[in-house]
Design a protein around this nucleic acid. Sequence first.
DNA 1: AAATGCTGCAACCGCAATGCA
DNA 2: TTGCATTGCGGTTGCAGCATT
Length: 287
Amino acid sequence: MAKQSCCYKKRLRRGLWSPEEDEKLMNHIAMYGHGCWSSVPKLAGLERCGKSCRLRWINYLRPDLKRGTFSQEEEDLIIHLHSMIGNKWSQIAAQLPGRTDNEVKNFWNSYIKKKLRERGIDPATHKPLAEATTSPTACRPVFSDAELVPTMTAALAQDQVVKMLDSLKMPLDWPVGGVAGNGVPESYQVPILQEGHMLQQHCGTFPSVSSSSTLTATDVGTTLPWLELGPTDTISGHVDQYAGALGELRWSDYFDGALQGQCVYDSGMVDDDAVQFDDVHGLSNWC
DNA sequence: AAATGCTGCAACCGCAATGCA
DNA sequence: TTGCATTGCGGTTGCAGCATT
């Protein structure tokens, strides 16, 4: 027998929300906040389950929602982020102020997918359709220069990278304990990817420290200040090259660099010290 | 005008992650 | 450590409204 939902079992209302229900929910949250969602319907006088109230608030009633049609910039950003992280709708939506994951997902499924196919691009792999069908394992994004992605602030890019790594179960763990005189940890805690993960085969040694400072356990889990690059800067090579550069990091350039194992970021430990962010995290072999 | 098909989107469902006792 | 409750997420469904026949 099919499993029945909580709303069905508790004989709660389902389906579209009436204006009266919206008003009750909005009034309640305006006065008391949502607190524990499971208690919201009772306190707000609604015959809905907490889950339904939460969804209604997040996707429709929240005052900071933008709604309306997506701009070209938003569309470009969605396409690019999708090419990098796939169907991580909540992470993509997090980069689009006022948009919800549901909205982004619907926009992707109803509009962007179709548009990409019309342009001969496989929406799943972001490769030309012909190529995608002949090379099932290939999944590197393919964009012409003209299509390439708006610029993204350095902070946003950094945030996205951290989220991306997090989503891939690749912890930024450093060993607690001995550090050799040259600043290289004596032993590495190799990040363990999930069994069967597409990146697992590429996961080798942990990052090397490129200069002579000391890495301490307190650096574990600290935020990683992003080096700001000028729009025309390339990203290959050592971080020292770019010290002091200002402006915006080109998102596409960053990922191209990362994907090719060339991207280096400032670890923020001591001056120009850098953690090389290449094979270590498998980013050089993204697919 | 009625029937049918299509589309967009709100809402639901199931599962995984997380928190807590 | 375990079990339960809650939250968050992504896939899917259902339906209203529009277009086409």
